[in-house]
Design a binder for these strands. Structure first.
Length: 150
DNA sequence: GCCAACGTTGGC
DNA sequence: GCCAACGTTGGC
């Protein structure tokens, strides 16, 4: 079973929002690399760190579970959506999403600052300069190490 | 196919 | 709100 990290701006959708809704379609991903991870890598049952980005204290705040295979993101077909993509068709959708369901919050936020201090995590795209990938793989070793920090 | 311009991400 | 870094677009 693979592990992942998924970023969300808490102002748009936070771990508490997921806790309340239990399950959410992870729409709006418009980056090919992130899409490919969802489409080709994710399987139901995979676990993912829920990461809060673009906020006062960026960091890992919880755990979610992949709850579906990848399927077309409906927002790409909706002209009123900010994620609308005029170049995508229903026959050949460009963007996909997965459903994610709430597992739990961490006992505390493990901040980006803290993650950066550990050499064990230096290979994570998350801590590398200039990387903006919003869906990224996490190795078993990194996963276990981070949970050990909790 | 190059690359400048543009838009977005996301830490700070 | 700023701005560095990056990905995408589109003219040529």
């Amino acid at each position: 079973m693979a592990h992942w990290l998924m970023k969300s701006e808490p102002e748009a959708f936070s771990i508490d929002d997921l806790a309340r809704k239990r399950k959410e379609a992870w729409d709006g991903v418009r980056n090919y690399q992130a899409r490919n991870f969802m489409r080709d890598g994710m399987r139901p049952g995979d676990k993912a760190f829920f990461y809060h980005s673009n906020c006062a204290a960026p960091g890992i705040v919880g755990i979610a579970e992949v709850a579906s295979a990848a399927y077309p993101d409906p927002t790409q077909f909706d002209p009123r959506s900010r994620h609308f993509d005029a170049g995508s068709t229903r026959d050949e959708p460009r963007w996909v999403l997965v459903d994610v369901k709430y597992v739990r919050k961490l006992k505390r936020i493990i901040t980006l600052d803290e993650l950066k201090t550990h050499p064990e995590l230096a290979a994570m795209p998350l801590v590398q300069r200039g990387t903006r990938l919003s869906v990224q793989p996490v190795t078993q070793a990194q996963w276990d190490f981070i949970l050990g920090l909790e």
